[in-house]
């Protein structure tokens, strides 16, 4: 599914190397988690994969099902099946949540050469998905993320993910700002989407999200590189001992 090979990335505007040779492979149907201290490059990795401006790839590549991701426009990556659940979902005043989603769904369908979804089908589809995430009709009508609570914003991200049916989902600190109940709802939403053909890359600071979304593999990222990979037990180790031990181990 997703293959990242020796990826080096610097900031476009300044001479600062953020990613220093990331290697990662997420096979189809698997959930991989990336943990790591602040400033390790986790979020940068999600932005570079999804095509945000401001970064320059100096070496390496990334492919999604064999297609070179880094040459594509952000919307082409989206249509190819890459989805990023934002750490800070963006507000778009005046644009109804449903209008936004319908535009997005149809834009992707158009890009893939499929017919647009009819208004009736879309409504049926979104109502079902929204119900699972306890998103009410009012939240679908309100402008995108405007005045949403932290929990509402993250649930809305998962709703978008459910509607767009991507193959590769990147969750960038989806647990930040969530209380226990909201985290449960969001995790259930994600788990409902787990499927043989869909992979997840879950970026998080804390192990607690991984209690709800059980990863197949956990990677530790530090200073722009993946320094250690292991099973779910690796997350627990970090939770108990912090990153210091692992970092020391690597340095040694």
């Amino acid at each position: 599914m997703l293959k990242i090979n020796n990826l080096h990335v610097k900031l476009e505007e300044e001479d600062k190397q953020i990613l220093k040779g990331v290697d990662l492979e997420v096979p189809a149907g698997k959930v991989h988690a990336i943990m790591g201290p602040n400033g390790s490059g986790k979020s940068t990795l999600s932005y570079v994969l999804s095509g945000r401006d401001g970064y320059e790839v100096t070496k390496g590549d990334a492919t999604l099902d064999g297609e070179e991701l880094l040459d594509m426009e952000p919307e082409e990556r989206a249509a190819a099946g890459l989805f990023l659940a934002f750490q800070y979902p963006v507000e778009i005043p005046g644009v109804g949540n449903m209008t936004f989603l319908r535009t997005a769904v149809n834009a992707q369908r158009k890009a893939r050469g499929e017919a647009e979804m009819s208004a009736a089908d879309f409504l049926k589809f979104i109502r079902a998905k929204a119900k699972d995430l306890k998103i009410d009709a009012d939240m679908l009508k309100r402008p995108v993320n405007v005045g949403f609570s932290g929990g509402e914003k993250k649930r809305n991200e998962i709703l978008q993910m459910a509607m767009l049916e991507p193959k590769m989902c990147i969750l960038d600190e989806t647990d930040s700002g969530l209380d226990v109940d909201a985290m449960k709802l969001v995790s259930e939403g994600v788990n409902a989407l787990r499927d043989e053909g869909r992979s997840f890359l879950v970026i998080t600071h804390y192990q607690r999200l991984l209690d709800h979304i059980k990863p197949d593999v956990v990677h530790i990222m530090a200073a722009g590189r993946i320094i250690k990979s292991g099973g779910p037990e690796l997350a627990l180790e970090v939770e108990h001992n912090g990153y210091a031990d692992i970092l020391a181990e690597i340095d040694a």
Partner: peptide, 13 residues
């Protein structure tokens, strides 16, 4: 720019 990127990540040109 954030709004633009958000829309494009969801598939709009």
């Amino acid at each position: 720019e954030e709004q633009m990127f958000y829309c494009r990540q969801r598939g709009m040109d």
